[in-house]
Computed example of a mutant assay.
Amino acid sequence: MIDRFRVGVITSSHGIKGEAKVYPTSDDQNRLKKIKKVYANIKGVETALDIETVRFQKNMALVKFKQFNTPEEIQAIRNTDLFVDRNNATPLKKNENYIADLIGLDVIDEEGILLGKVTDVFPTGANHVMEVDMGEKKVLFPYISQCILDVNLEEKKIKVHVLDGLLDL
């Protein structure tokens, strides 16, 4: 399991006081308002950044970090990912998993036959979808209870029910 989760990406500077435009990558866009510290890899050095303020403008968070005070300082760290520690991540509900923990898990069917590995999980309008690399093709499994039967992080396996027609494409 990974220890940190990405919550946003610095896209550019905003204004003259050193605010950063951050594109939120968490399911909970208000997540940035609830945390006080994020981590970033800045020029090869893992750096803790203290959040002073967060406000929103359209789909972007405008974040003021204690460590930066000019637009030029923010421009120098454009396209930098922001992470939180696992213990500061959004708490899980029953039968929920962090997407980052699912990537790379083996996917098996009800008979225990290996189908492939999880390469991505992403939201759609109704539910999340799990992309599984089956070697010669990639298949999208709906992340719903009728399809996802069991997630075992210790064994690094996800047991699925293959819905009729899912593998026919």
Rank of each mutant, 00 (worst) to 15 (best):
Q57L: 10
N79A: 12
D120C: 09
T90Y: 11
V129N: 06
I103W: 02
V84C: 10
E131M: 01
M130L: 02
A76N: 13
V132W: 01
A126K: 09
G135C: 01
R86P: 10
T80N: 00
P71K: 15
R78D: 08
V107K: 09
R55Q: 03
D106P: 04
R78Q: 07
H128Q: 11
Q75N: 12
N95S: 03
T80F: 00
V132K: 06
I113N: 14
D50E: 11
Q67L: 09
L82Y: 14
L105A: 11
K64H: 07
N59L: 05
E73Y: 06
I99K: 09
N97K: 08
M134R: 00
G125V: 09
R86G: 13
L115V: 09
N97W: 14
N87R: 14
E73D: 15
A126R: 05
L92G: 09
F83T: 00
I51L: 06
P91A: 13
K64W: 05
K58P: 00
T53F: 01
T53Y: 03
T124D: 12
Q57R: 11
G116K: 02
L62A: 00
L62R: 05
Q57M: 13
T80G: 04
T119A: 04
H128A: 15
N59F: 04
Q75P: 07
T124S: 15
D109F: 08
G135Q: 09
A61D: 02
N127W: 14
V107Q: 05
G135V: 03
E111N: 12
G116C: 07
A76R: 12
L92K: 02
Q67N: 10
L62Y: 00
P123F: 03
G135H: 04
N69I: 01
F65V: 03
K93C: 07
V129E: 05
D81K: 15
E110C: 08
A100N: 07
I99T: 11
T53W: 01
V121S: 04
E131T: 04
L62P: 00
Y98S: 00
E52F: 02
V132G: 04
V121C: 14
P91F: 08
A89E: 11
G125S: 13
I103D: 03
Q67V: 05
D85P: 01
M134E: 10
L62D: 03
K93P: 11
R86V: 08
I108V: 03
K58R: 14
P91L: 14
V118M: 13
V63I: 13
Y98E: 00
D109R: 09
A76E: 11
A89C: 02
